[in-house]
Design a protein around this nucleic acid. Structure first.
Length: 192
DNA sequence: GAAAAGATCTTCT
DNA sequence: GAAGATCTTTTCC
């Protein structure tokens, strides 16, 4: 059952991904509060061969099968963590990968954690997690509660959202399920 | 029980 | 522009 609070995410992933653009993530670590705006996302769901949920529910991706409003964090290549915002209803594996964010608060702390400054600190999935201190301990976390929360912002106008092919995967690459904010410096660039 | 692949990032040439 | 790092999860024998 989806809580009323997250009804706005209980829609097809592509629509949820668009709504997440411009929203704010709040990460609390001890006495510090880090805030960041979501500027780039990718949509994944159960019918997508590139999705972790394509082959069914497992202990690892269990969080993604929960109802909207949870976080799904996984480790990739043994080195990097990636965060997803779970969407849809309980039992259906869908979610939105956060690829890039724009720091709004606690920027010094993010740069210190990353060891980099400027746009290089958060312009990639693994970088976002490192900067915000997100680990698998937060997988399955309810993002309506500390220490990681999602704050809804008004949906961006259609003219501010760019749609394109996804990055870094080998299946269904042509699917246009990557969304990002027009002219935003923090959006990751495809590798050339 | 063993092997292969993976929603990536950094560093080197 | 190309390849290495590094390790978890899944799948197959």
């Amino acid at each position: 059952m989806v809580k009323d609070e997250w009804k706005w995410l209980n829609v097809p992933v592509e629509a949820a991904a668009r709504r997440l653009l411009g929203c704010e993530l709040v990460r609390q670590i001890d006495d510090l509060t880090l805030r960041a705006k979501i500027v780039e996302v990718e949509a994944y769901d159960q019918a997508d061969p590139a999705s972790h949920t394509y082959r069914g529910r497992t202990a690892r991706n269990d969080a993604m099968f929960r109802s909207a409003g949870h976080a799904y964090v996984y480790l990739i290549h043994g080195i990097h963590n990636c965060v997803n915002i779970v969407t849809g209803v309980e039992g259906y594996g869908s979610g939105v990968l956060i690829r890039a964010v724009e720091p709004l608060g606690g920027i010094d702390e993010m740069e210190r954690r990353r060891g980099w400054s400027g746009i290089e600190a958060t312009n990639g999935p693994g970088k976002v997690c490192a900067a915000l201190g997100i680990t698998r301990q937060l997988s399955g976390h309810d993002i309506g509660l500390p220490p990681l929360q999602l704050i809804r912002h008004p949906e961006l106008p259609e003219s501010e959202i760019i749609t394109g092919p996804r990055i870094g995967i080998s299946k269904a690459v042509h699917e246009l399920r990557r969304f990002y904010i027009k002219d935003n410096l923090y959006v990751s660039k495809p590798r050339t």
